[in-house]
Every structure is written in structure tokens, then in C-alpha cells.
Design a protein around this nucleic acid. Structure first.
Length: 547
RNA sequence: GCGCCGGUAGCUCAGUUGGAUAGAGCAUCAGCCUUCUAAGCUGAGGGUCAUUGGUUCGAGUCCAAUCCGGCGUACCA
């Protein structure tokens, strides 16, 4: 909002100097508020090109600025050549008034112009339960999808899965072995690379309760029964867990359909006709080295089966053909190897690979009292997401998984997450929201008629203006978080906004102040409440009225 | 070996296309509730930004090398 006002003024002044330069005009908010509301280093950056002193360039530039004295109080040179801009209280009051007009839609924009975005996340095959790492993937994908929605994109949330192939047979064999063991066949061998989790026993138990001994013959049909039952069981659990995390995906894309609909074949033909594949040792190779990659890779094995790369390529091609303008993939760090291959292949097929945004998040470790938690009694593997949700709830899980940057290793502190107190950062945000609600409850109890459009120009306290300055950043923060696909930016902002509110609340009485001032402050509180609520909604976290 | 991610306060992490005195939470210590929710607020201490060199008006940020940690590196998915 500040930049939108000041930038054209500087551009106009720069034009008057007749300086032709590629140096970008950048404004930033100084860390120290004594250095103004905005600052630009343009004079320093021009100094080299113009071979003049930064300060004299700055001086000249400032003399050419034409601005409204009612909105900007001063523009001055500081340090070695920064130009610092100070806005007036009136400017901020005007800005707040504009925000009030947009009501609870504040923060939404149409910047995306309805571009179609596909966000693919979770994408776990139905062979097991979700654990903490999947949770991070899920929450990042969901929040990024929300960010695209709030910035005016048309978003499809998609889950890509494979219920065919070896891993599913493996699941079937694992279930079957447990089933036989339940039947009393204690020594029935468990497959060597089977799924060892306790949940397999649960599945087998349920299967047994339904079918009793009727599946005892070790034949193809009975294995298929096990597979089907296991798939449904796992998918049911996965979806239920996602539901608890408030995650709803509208498209479940089955990898198998790529084969049955001939899309695998068609991508091979496409690559072949463009000359990017060749045969060697009985296998089909993709000539990735022609795209600057180190090695060529096999896409169809000599056995005739495709490697995992091929369906991945076909799937991405398919997403483009379905008409998406932007593809977002959310992967864990262990999937990184396939990314360059797929992107290169997509480019080879004539699509713009810059439209694919691959978000790779690092791993999550769970700690308790400073020690790593590895084992869980239930699964024998790692804490499941469900167990975590049981313990601390969806709001805490989501926030903890979002409050760190995607590319950094995340330590999930279970002791802190369990803490229902001031130590827990989630409650700090939610408390600010509840506190505002409570002010309005009190107002209602005392029969105060809240004015819908009070005169807010009466506001003058420093904490009031700090809060306003924070509030007007909101759209910029959303847009930044969306551009970088980094939910942490929003989580961080909300924390500092909540802090600004708490400072204000501490310093300024709302109810009990003189009437005009009280109404202005109520309006300020209400606007803050909307921002916190909208911000938490994007993060998928509830904004309680009472705590 | 090669590739990707990371190394910033005791701990967990921010640090906006290179900017002014490197920040937050937790932990530690000292304060603030007869008044709208103390899940709050105020203050203090705490740093070789892994190491070394380079680029420039200016480096936590860019470049190079080295060290440490994580994850990859199949005709497995």
C-alpha cells in the first residue's frame, strides 16, 4: 500500500533526471522505525553508473519529488545515501478506512486472474498410515493451495496414487500372512520385505472377523481379496486422518489410469517422434544428457515394464493437457532424485517447465524433552499422524508443521506442542483473536451500540499506529507467501500482528474510553480480528471466539 | 565420488532480488493483575552469523575452497 503510492512518484522524478538505467527501484521497510516507513537505496545504486556521490544524487532526486504533504510528512537523506520516507498519520488512517470497506474479504486479491493451478500433495500409496512426514507434506500443500486461492487463482487439490504394482502385492502378502497367523498358523512365514507395522495385524483381524477361515487357501483370488481389503482400509484411514486435518482434495488421480487409457503409450510415442529416446540392451532410454543432465535413464525396462519415471512424466504431461497453467508438486526430500528427470522430459515434450513449481520439504523429527522420539508402540515404526492428532489436536499440528521454512529440517517438539499454555505459539495467535471477541462481548453486555462507520481519525497512540501499519501489510504478506510458496511467512506475520495487538491492548483502554475514541478503537480491534481470522483460515487453523 | 538441503544466542528457528545498531519464541533472571481474558505486558543478560579467502561504497545474504549434519544418487517406487 505504501509502495503503491510512492513508487510512481519516484518513477516520475527519475524520468525527469533523464537517467537511463536498469537499476531497479526498490523500497523496503527499515528495521528501525527511526529510519522512516519506507526506504530506498536507489541513489547508492545509481552512484556507480553516474559517477556521482550518492548523497548528491539523492538530494537532486528529492528535489524533483512531487507529493502530497498531507500524506507524506518528510523525505530525507540518511546514512551513506538512503532516502527515507515518512508517511503522515492521515495516510495510515486513509489506508485503514480503505481496508474497513473490504470487510471480511480483506486480504483476497484477483492478482491470479483466474489462472488454473493444480496443487498435488500427500499422494501416499494406500499401503499404510500417514506419519508425521506426510503430515508436513499435506499441510504445506493445503496451505499453498489456500494461498493461491486467496490470490485469485482457480485451484484444484489433487492426490496422486498408485494401487497397482509390486507394493500392493506386497501389502496383500503381508496381510495374508497375518491372517494365517490369526487363524492359528503361528509359523506361517511373513514376507521378507513385507510391511511390518502393527496396522497390518489390525487389517488381518478385521478381515478375519468378516471372512473367518474362508480365505485359507493360498491362491490368487484370496490374495486379491486381501489386497482390495487392505487398500480400502488404508485409504479409509488416510482420508479420515486428512479430514481431521481439515484437508479435502477433490481429485484422486490413479496412476493405473495412465496405463489403461493409453497415456503411457502415447507419451512414449511422443518422445520417440521427437527423437529423445533410444533402445539399448533391450531397454528404452530417455536421452536426458541432451538436456544438460548427467546421465540417460531407462524409462522402459528390458522386461517391458516402465520405471517410475515414465508414469511421472506422463502424469505431468497429462496435467498440462488438462489445461492447468501452473503445476505445484509437494515432495519430501527423499523424492528429489526424480525431479530433474521429469522436468527435463516435460521440456522435451514442448511444455514450459517453469510452470512447474516443485516444493521439496526437508524431513521432520519428533522430539520430546529434548530427545528424539523414534518408536511408537502401535506401529513399530514412527509416530502416526493420528496418534499426534489425538494428543495435541489439528490446530497445533498444523501450526507446528507450518512455522518453519520448507527447506529446513523441522523439529517437532512434542512437549511444547502438548503444552496448553503461553509457551505454545499457536495459542498466542488464537488468544489475540479470543481477546478481541471478548471485548465485543463486554461491549454488548454493557449495552454499547457499536457504530459501523466511526471516525477513526481520532486515533493517535503509537501502539494504534503500529497496529495499523501491521494490518496494512497483510495483502503484501499473502502475495509474498504465495510467490515463494512459503506458509511460514504468513505464520510469522500473524505472530507479530498478534504482538502488535497485545501491545495496543495493554496500552489503550477500549471500553471505558471517551465515546468517540472507544468506537474508533473498537473498529481497529475489529479490523485486527478480521486479519487474524483470515490469516488463520489460510493456515487452516481455527480462530476461537473464546479460550 | 556426484547432486540437493542445512550450519545464525543455551535450545528451536527468522533474517524481504546485498543495506543502517543481526531478530523472535523457548530457557534463565527481575518486575506488572480492585478496571475490556495475566494463554497478556515491561525490562535484563546471552552472538567469532561453521572456517578461510574473494567480489564492493557495504556481505549472515553473492562467488570459490574446506569442515560438519540430513537426504538422495537402480532396468526399486
Amino acid at each position: 500500500m505504501l509502495i503503491a503510492y510512492i513508487k510512481p512518484i519516484f518513477q516520475k522524478a527519475l524520468a525527469l533526471t533523464n537517467v537511463q538505467s536498469n537499476v531497479p527501484l526498490i523500497f523496503e521497510s527499515p528495521k528501525n522505525s527511526e529510519n522512516g516507513d519506507l526506504s530506498t537505496n536507489i541513489a547508492m545504486r545509481l552512484a556507480k553508473e553516474l559517477k556521482q556521490q550518492p548523497r548528491s544524487i539523492a538530494e537532486h532526486l528529492i528535489s524533483l519529488l512531487e507529493y502530497d504533504n498531507e500524506l507524506i510528512s518528510k523525505v530525507e537523506i540518511a546514512g551513506t545515501g538512503f532516502i527515507n520516507i515518512y508517511f503522515t498519520e492521515k495516510f495510515f488512517i486513509n489506508a485503514l478506512n480503505t481496508i474497513i470497506q473490504s470487510g471480511d474479504q480483506y486480504g483476497r486479491s484477483k492478482a491470479g486472474k483466474g489462472l488454473k493451478v493444480n496443487v498435488e500433495y500427500v499422494s501416499v500409496n494406500p499401503t499404510g498410515l500417514l506419519h508425521l512426514g506426510h503430515g508436513r507434506n499435506a499441510v504445506i500443500g493445503d496451505t499453498v493451495a489456500n494461498l493461491f486461492e486467496w490470490t485469485g487463482h482457480e485451484v484444484t487439490r489433487e492426490y496422486y496414487f498408485n494401487n497397482a504394482g509390486n507394493q500392493m502385492n506386497n501389502l496383500a502378502k503381508s496381510i495374508y500372512a497375518r491372517y494365517r497367523q490369526i487363524m492359528g498358523d503361528q509359523d506361517y512365514p511373513f514376507p521378507e520385505d513385507g510391511y511390518h507395522g502393527e496396522y497390518i495385524k489390525e487389517i488381518a483381524q478385521e478381515l478375519y472377523e468378516i471372512n473367518a477361515d474362508s480365505l485359507s487357501d493360498e491362491n490368487e483370488d484370496n490374495l486379491i481379496q486381501c489386497r482390495k481389503f487392505g487398500e480400502n482400509w488404508c485409504f479409509g484411514k488416510i482420508k479420515a486422518t486428512l479430514e481431521r486435518m481439515k484437508i479435502h482434495q477433490e481429485v484422486y488421480y490413479n496412476e493405473d489410469s495412465l496405463y489403461s487409457s493409453g497415456k503411457i503409450e502415447s507419451v512414449i510415442n511422443d518422445l520417440r517422434s521427437r527423437g529423445w529416446v533410444y533402445e539399448k540392451d533391450g531397454a528404452l532410454w530417455l536421452a536426458l544428457s541432451q538436456f544438460g543432465l548427467k546421465d540417460d535413464r531407462v524409462i522402459v525396462k528390458s522386461s517391458g515394464e516402465p520405471t517410475y519415471r515414465l508414469p511421472d512424466i506422463a502424469y505431468h504431461r497429462e496435467k498440462f493437457l488438462r489445461g492447468f497453467d501452473i503445476l505445484v508438486d509437494v515432495f519430501g526430500a527423499d523424492h528429489i532424485a526424480t525431479v530433474p528427470d521429469v522436468l527435463a522430459a516435460i521440456a522435451a515434450l514442448g511444455f514450459d517447465k517453469d510452470k512447474v513449481k516443485v516444493l521439496i520439504h526437508q524431513f521432520v523429527t519428533l522430539t520430546e524433552n529434548g530427545e528424539q522420539v523414534k518408536m511408537s508402540k502401535r506401529t513399530g515404526k514412527s509416530y502416526t499422524l493420528d496418534e499426534l492428532l489425538d494428543e495435541v489436536g489439528a490446530d497445533v499440528v498444523r501450526f507446528f508443521l507450518l512455522m518453519r521454512g520448507i527447506s529446513t529440517h523441522l523439529e517437532f517438539d512434542l512437549s511444547l506442542a502438548r503444552e496448553q499454555s503461553d509457551k505454545n505459539p499457536v495459542f498466542y495467535l488464537q488468544y489475540a483473536h479470543a481477546r478481541i471477541s471478548s471485548v465485543f462481548d463486554t461491549a454488548r453486555e454493557r449495552g454499547i451500540n457499536y457504530e459501523t462507520n466511526p471516525d477513526i481519525s481520532i486515533l493517535s497512540h503509537i501502539t494504534e499506529f503500529n497496529l495499523i501499519k501491521s494490518i496494512i501489510q497483510f495483502p503484501k504478506i499473502i502475495s509474498l507467501a504465495k510467490d515463494k510458496c512459503e506458509p511460514m511467512i504468513l505464520a510469522d506475520y500473524l505472530r507479530s500482528l498478534a504482538a502488535d495487538f497485545h501491545f495496543f491492548y495493554h496500552e489503550c483502554r477500549i471500553i471505558g474510553s471517551e465515546s468517540a475514541l472507544m468506537h474508533a478503537r473498537l473498529q481497529l480491534a475489529l479490523t485486527t480480528k478480521i486479519v487474524i481470522k483470515n490469516g488463520l483460515t489460510i493456515l487452516g487453523i481455527s480462530a476461537p471466539e473464546r479460550m
